[in-house]
């Protein structure tokens, strides 16, 4: 059953991505990007990544869509219909794709329990982090790792978001009393 859901969701994702590339209307593209995020959130759910699923649904499907629509309000136009495009990008993409697929041939199969990624470290976190006499406490291992074992990393993430917020404000000139004069 899980395999069936997995295949259906992946096929839907590919269909969404292809129509995204082909569409010219920017509003429709942004909506499709939201659907893309939501579908991938469902997929994260089937792959046991519950925390990632709700973050992707809230941030990827919600916040990003709102940001894009906000930018479109300020810009407000359709994508221009291009002249004859060159075939070079398609060739580059196809070659890269084939090289990457060749690279997956050595990868362990999906879900295989003896993949290298499951052999080191993980068991220690799962066994020692939670519970009343565990190192951190909460039953959710993801929370323990995020907030405690990798706390410095999360703090760095906060710095990144702060920097991004400051640069957006500087770029858009939010909060400056003097309004830029219109060129016209």
């Amino acid at each position: 059953m899980i395999v069936f859901i997995d295949i259906v969701l992946l096929t839907l994702l590919v269909a969404t991505a292809i129509s995204l590339v082909r569409l010219r209307n920017l509003i429709a593209t942004i909506m499709l990007a939201g659907i893309f995020s939501l579908l991938s959130a469902c997929l994260f759910m089937t792959m046991d990544a519950v925390d990632v699923a709700f973050t992707e649904a809230a941030v990827g499907a919600g916040l990003t869509t709102v940001l894009m629509l906000g930018a479109l309000v300020l810009i407000g136009r359709e994508e221009k219909v291009p002249g004859k495009g060159s075939a070079l990008p398609l060739v580059v993409v196809l070659i890269t794709g084939f090289v990457l697929i060749y690279g997956t041939m050595d990868m362990p199969y999906f879900g295989s329990p003896d993949a290298p990624i499951h052999q080191h470290l993980v068991d220690r976190y799962v066994e020692k982090s939670g519970g009343p006499d565990g190192e951190v406490g909460p039953p959710n291992v993801v929370t323990s790792v995020l907030a405690s074992y990798r706390g410095y990393d999360t703090m760095g993430e906060v710095a990144v978001i702060f920097t991004a917020a400051v640069s957006v404000m500087l770029l858009l000139g939010v909060g400056f009393a003097t309004k830029r004069e219109d060129a016209s």
Binding site: M47, V52, T55, G60, T64, E157, I161, A164
Partner: peptide, 22 residues
Amino acid sequence: SNPLPHVLILTAIVVGVATTAV
């Protein structure tokens, strides 16, 4: 399932939104 990639990706999603905003 392995929680370590989940943690990594949680961080990446949030950073991704920050770069999109900029």
